[in-house]
Design a protein around this nucleic acid. Structure first.
Lengths: 236, 236
DNA sequence: ACATACTACTTGTATATACAAGTATGCACA
DNA sequence: TGTGCATACTTGTATATACAAGTAGTATGT
């Protein structure tokens, strides 16, 4: 049995995800929440406090508590599904699949994925959008060894990231981030011009047994930020 | 007047700093703290809870609360001095100081640094270069409270980052990364054109007692990449 | 000797209550 | 027409209390 304040947190998160409460909307006051959930105000308050600390809600003394509407931001320190990110912000998520096929590994690709030159690897290009605006162009190469059914997946239902995490749980990742101007076809897919700067993230993910995939993610600079919070104390 | 729980937090931080309590030591129990400070247990508990959230203390149900190990971690995303980075690559490092002065905090800056509007804060702009090519434009605002001698430092000998780490050891940092086109004066300082994309990193650093500095770092997109390695084994 | 139960402590959850402090609105008064 | 005040909300701080749950050590019974 989960603690009451956790249940209230989950109820609030549900309301944000299913659109009952959108960014900027006022959350029921602590007293109202207490009434609705039949708990004391202090317990309702704790639920709200934790969501505020997570950045999902914002409150102002004397005014009320509101669903925050931060600019898209994701963490460099955890690898989350872009879909979850968007939905948790209370926004509309959609994706379109531009490519889903298999290719022959050239030398560079073989080195990235730790396979042989000439081996078959899976390949996908997917564009993710938030409220109708593209926010990520995802090109990914996958080692068939750890995800043999990759091509049979329906990535409109479940992100590649999510699927891979199911069949080959992540244990490590390398990534690098840089700013660059997009190539023409990427600019077109993201609905920006070739002069708009992009954030390019190259990432290689590992499961316990080896390299799972190599992904290159492009984000429009003006619609996306990568964020993080570091805590330098050891957690042990 | 600070809230009671904040006063207790500060008292605990003092005890950690002056060595009364070292890493691994047990902190007085919530009931003892409540007695010592003449507050209710819930108030003492709140002080401890916040320090736990900041990673300074650790607690275990049934056992007690302990001072965490201070060892600066994170192979994942270490905040390193740009100077060390360059030198470690075996390249030539140089820096030039464009500004080193104090300014009056406007509303936005006051919020970033958690000072009052109109307070004096220190300000510096430094350009770092690798093998003669600029690779970082660093604009930084510093809370004088934690680094009163900031303006007297010789930043050609020691980076701002390094100095701050001495006088107010980092415990936490927030940052966000985005791609953007540089303003004219930044482009000029970095010796690039205004059409060359840049990586902009905004970072706020904290010591145990509060916000130490706010830095905005610009890197030419074609000369710099941000890298990292994540390991998912230990945590959660 | 060994397992069980008890005890004394710790942190974790939850309540009911009180008042302080900040915000917005409408109403009375000049 | 305003200006200020009262009011009705909100969140913020603080207390006293109760019991649940986890840990460690001690005493007890077989």
């Amino acid at each position: 049995m989960l603690p009451r304040y956790t249940q209230i947190k989950l109820a609030l998160l549900d309301a944000i995800e299913d659109g009952t409460m959108g960014p900027g909307d006022q959350v029921p006051s602590e007293n109202q929440l207490a009434l609705q959930h039949q708990v004391s105000r202090m317990t309702a308050r704790r639920a709200v406090t934790e969501l505020v600390e997570e950045g999902i809600l914002m409150r102002t003394q004397g005014l009320g508590t509101f669903v925050s509407d931060h600019r898209p931001m994701s963490s460099m320190l955890e690898i989350r599904s872009i879909r979850d990110e968007v939905i948790q912000r209370g926004h509309r998520y959609a994706s379109s699949i531009l490519h889903l096929d298999s290719v022959i590994a050239n030398e560079a690709l073989a080195r990235w994925l730790d396979v042989g030159i000439g081996d078959v690897v899976f390949h996908s290009i997917i564009v993710h959008s938030e409220n109708g605006q593209p926010i990520q162009y995802e090109e990914r190469w996958v080692n068939p060894r750890w995800a043999p059914d990759y091509l049979q997946q329906d990535f409109s239902q479940q992100t590649a990231n999510h699927y891979l995490n199911l069949v080959a749980p992540l244990t490590q990742a390398d990534h690098s981030v840089e700013a660059m101007l997009p190539e023409a076809h990427i600019a077109q897919a993201l609905q920006i011009t070739a002069a708009d700067p992009c954030l390019k993230i190259s990432r290689r993910t590992y499961s316990a047994r080896g390299v799972v995939s190599h992904a290159v993610l492009y984000h429009p600079g003006n619609r996306y930020r990568l964020g993080g919070h570091l805590n330098f104390q050891a957690k042990t």
